[in-house]
């Protein structure tokens, strides 16, 4: 276990109107680790991620980043802390090339003019750092890329900004077998490079393939956050479907154990 978590949420509550979506959720993320966030549909995964990303303000609880308590009210605040989210629908522009997409909205300029050479250099360096060798040219249009390559570009875009925490929302949901392996390898490499990675996934194989730690949400509560090596496939499935598995998980009333 690493000393201080890079990101720590304590007792987060979030309601939409009268619907309480998150109950007293605690969640920690460590640098150099892949934390898988699992849970059934409606368990609150997306809401939790949007709270982390500053899209939804939290109603109660504490948001700690690198050992300091912080206030996150907008996506800009989250980005300033080094938190980047890669959404499921990738938000890439098909008619732009890889470099243009990676820098979209944050272009480098020299005076009025775009500094294409610098951006191309930085993009190439980032992709190289991630050992991405599958794209033929970083000046090719995104429309000509495969699903896995697009996911790679979206992830590289998040990494480009010296981010510390990268949250991936179901990055392999729409991919084939080979491309899934490609993206998982990239996810692992991000963590090995020292980033904290949060991977949202429904796929147990993916979760066990790359994660160091698993956090299971059940009906808006954190059922358990455990080391991947300590649990089995079926235990995680039980945590997802019933919120508990043996001595793991939610007790009858409250009190999550981990």
């Amino acid at each position: 276990m690493t000393a201080t978590p890079i990101l720590e949420l304590r007792g987060i509550d979030k309601s939409f109107g009268s619907v309480r979506v998150l109950h007293d959720v605690s969640f920690t993320v460590h640098p150099g680790e892949v934390t898988a966030l699992v849970g059934d549909n409606g368990a609150g995964k997306s809401t939790l991620v949007k709270c982390i990303g500053g899209i939804h303000p939290i109603d109660g609880g504490e948001y700690w980043c690198e050992g300091r308590q912080v206030q996150v009210h907008s996506p800009r605040d989250a980005a300033a802390l080094g938190v980047e989210i890669v959404y499921q629908d990738l938000a890439l522009c098909d008619n732009l090339d890889i470099v243009q997409n990676m820098f979209l909205g944050r272009e480098r300029r020299r005076g009025l003019v775009l500094d294409d050479a610098t951006m191309e250099e930085m993009a190439a360096k980032t992709l190289e750092g991630l050992s991405v060798r599958t794209v033929k040219s970083i000046r090719q249009q995104v429309s000509s890329l495969s699903g896995g390559q697009r996911q790679t570009v979206a992830i590289a875009k998040a990494v480009l900004w010296n981010s510390k925490v990268v949250i991936l929302d179901e990055p392999t949901a729409a991919l084939g077998v080979a491309q899934t392996a490609q993206v998982l390898e990239l996810v692992r490499r991000l963590a090995d490079n020292g980033l904290a990675v949060v991977l949202i996934s429904h796929n147990m194989n993916d979760v066990f393939a790359v994660s160091d730690r698993i956090a299971a949400l059940y009906l808006g509560r954190m059922a358990a956050q455990v080391s991947t090596s300590d649990v089995t496939h079926s235990q995680v499935v039980e945590l997802i479907t019933s919120g508990r598995s043996g001595d793991l998980g939610l007790a009858h009333s409250n009190g999550a154990t981990a």
Partner: peptide, 24 residues
């Protein structure tokens, strides 16, 4: 072709939602 404004024009035409998320 050479300014951010132009690039944002292409971005909005290609995928307005992506452009919005990129802060354009």
């Amino acid at each position: 072709q050479r300014t951010s404004f132009g690039l944002h024009m292409y971005a909005v035409g290609g995928n307005a939602e992506a452009a919005r998320r990129a802060g354009i």
